[in-house]
Write a protein that binds this DNA or RNA. Structure first.
Lengths: 227, 227
DNA sequence: TAGATTGTTAATCGATTAACAATC
DNA sequence: TAGATTGTTAATCGATTAACAATC
């Protein structure tokens, strides 16, 4: 049986298509749910049904990383979950810092689901003197002026930006200067960063607009049907 | 000049591809930024450059909704923004209710960006007696037991679910019973709803895992290069 | 008018699905 | 063994890109 990593050049150096990458966390969640129910085995057909995709796609996706199943049997839930966790970097401790300790920042800082999977928020930062020095989930909010210096002393991999849009680019620059390798950005702006740094956006506003569009479409269809 | 709506069957009844839908809010944001800078015109080339996509794609996307530009000139920023706003249902008042007034729920309830675009949170709900009755951003938190009844008296279009995963399905059922047409779901579960109801998921955990995967990939590439 | 840029049709590229030999 | 289901190759489908006539 193979591991998730280079088994003699199986992994193409770069290319896991983004569309596959986006499904990986869904596999992870589904498998976690099955494991919690102590289900032992699962077939590509069952996984596909839960995700509303095609069984071929499940097998195709997984085969990009290795051969995790058995003909005639399917996949062992625990084994496959373990491999997916390795692929996603879950359960390996990943240090993060969070900048912008407003409502959203605090919600994220208090959301223990991330910590459970090894994503640890090591420090919180803000620019507001009324917030600096306060304690959130046992961590003191620090002055953002000291952000780069802090990171040089206490390296972290991921920086979370929960500031208003106007401050986000400057914060990103400081995170990069501090050696951060990935940015999780909740501010509604496109950040400019060196190409050695990954950015993952969570744009709540965009998500709401997509919902709004779908609603409009659905109403329009209903009207068309009446015609 | 045409409007965004049925100009003699231009809109195919159903099919705006999801990949196009996801870009619409990005066009909206870019155009808003340009409008704020009082830029008058923009070409598909300029828009494409900002989005890191192909100019053809911009024209292709927009042409699904109508003809908004002028040969040799490009697009009038204000006009195109207006049309996109219409397409997305922005600036038309959309009533929403929010269930789950924990940290995340409160963050969203306080996030005024949505209200600015016409998305109004009319009421807040929770099941925790310690939270029920409190005031958040001028709205009283109500008992979730009265959710369906409230909606029958005060209809709304969108329900926002910010509860823990375990409670989400039940809340969804009540929202549907109350006549809600769209659900904005922050709980990490796949909701089962009638197909007349739209669901838009925001899965923060999935987003963080995608970032984690990209980081691992990037590290792996760096190591491969050294070989 | 000449230059620029749209809207649209055709070509290419990539992702999804089908099919099936391998084999547990 | 017979039945089931994988991993993979080939076929299909859909989305992106290129090309260009139309025209501001």
């Amino acid at each position: 049986m193979s591991t998730a990593n280079n088994k003699g050049g199986k992994d193409k150096d770069k290319g896991i298509p983004l569309t596959v990458v986006k499904r990986l966390p869904v596999y992870q969640r589904l498998l976690s749910e099955l494991a919690a129910k102590e289900v032992e085995r699962v077939s590509s057909r069952e996984l596909a049904a839960r995700m509303k995709i095609n069984p071929s796609q499940v097998r195709q996706d997984l085969s990009l990383f290795g051969s995790f199943g058995q003909q005639g049997y399917g996949y062992r839930v625990n084994y496959l979950l373990g491999e997916i966790n390795k692929i996603l970097g879950i359960n390996v401790e990943t240090k993060m810092v969070l900048v912008g300790s407003g409502q959203l920042g605090r919600a994220i800082a208090n959301y223990n689901n991330f910590a459970k999977r090894g994503f640890i928020i090591e420090a919180l930062f803000d620019c507001d003197p009324r917030v600096i020095g306060r304690t959130i989930n046992n961590r003191i909010v620090r002055d953002v002026q000291g952000l780069t210096a802090y990171l040089q002393a206490e390296p972290a991999e991921i920086g979370i930006i929960c500031t208003p849009a106007a401050a986000a680019q400057e914060v990103a620059d400081q995170l990069v200067a501090g050696g951060i390798k990935g940015i999780w950005n909740f501010a509604p702006v496109a950040l400019k960063v060196p190409e050695t740094v990954c950015v993952e956006h969570v744009h709540l506003g965009e998500s709401l607009m997509i919902l709004s569009f779908k609603l409009k479409q659905m109403n329009a269809e209903r009207i068309n049907q009446k015609k």
